[in-house]
Amino acid sequence: MSPGKKLKVATASLAGCFGCHMSLLDIDERLFTLLERVELDRSPLTDLKVLSACDLGLIEGGLCNAENVEVLRLFRARCKVLVAVGACAINGGLPAQRNHLDVRECLTKVYGEGSVPNDPELPLPLDQVHPISDVVRVDYFLPGCPPSAEVLWQFLTDLLDGRTPKPGAGLIAYD
């Protein structure tokens, strides 16, 4: 990415807990520096609901339902660079703990026999939680649960300055 230009950045939370978004906000006052250099597009932090062509897409969370898959495909189609942010996007994370369980049995257990929610407005759940790289090509993976604000800051400033992002040794934690 060429240095100096305002980047268009979109973010999404799929089957994640928003902790990765919180970690991004944990850059604290550097947020204002970042906002001078990037323009936020579709994101839970804005009211822009339609995704435009973006330079960078940050994806938090894995895939737990059909809607996640749809949103992810859209992000891949419209974002030049797509990043899997955090354990959930990379390998499903904690929500993937349900993968060894039978979905039907879980539902009945939680809602009771005969009263499990079922409505056209509710997206089809997948029987397994998938990493996002199962469905689209991913350009970068940022591990951590969540990746720390330092990692995210280093990564974003590297990209903004036109360098290949290389979060330095000791920054990345695989929690």
């Binding site: 979905v103 499990v116 079922n118 089809l124 759940p125 997948l126 199962d134 469905v135 090509r137």
Partner: peptide, 21 residues
């Protein structure tokens, strides 16, 4: 925190369209 019903038919395809599950 609860799980949804109605997994009718679900397909997950890879970047090239290959059926993964």
């Amino acid at each position: 925190h609860a799980l949804g019903q109605m997994p009718l038919h679900v397909e997950v395809r890879g970047p090239g369209g290959a059926l993964l599950g």
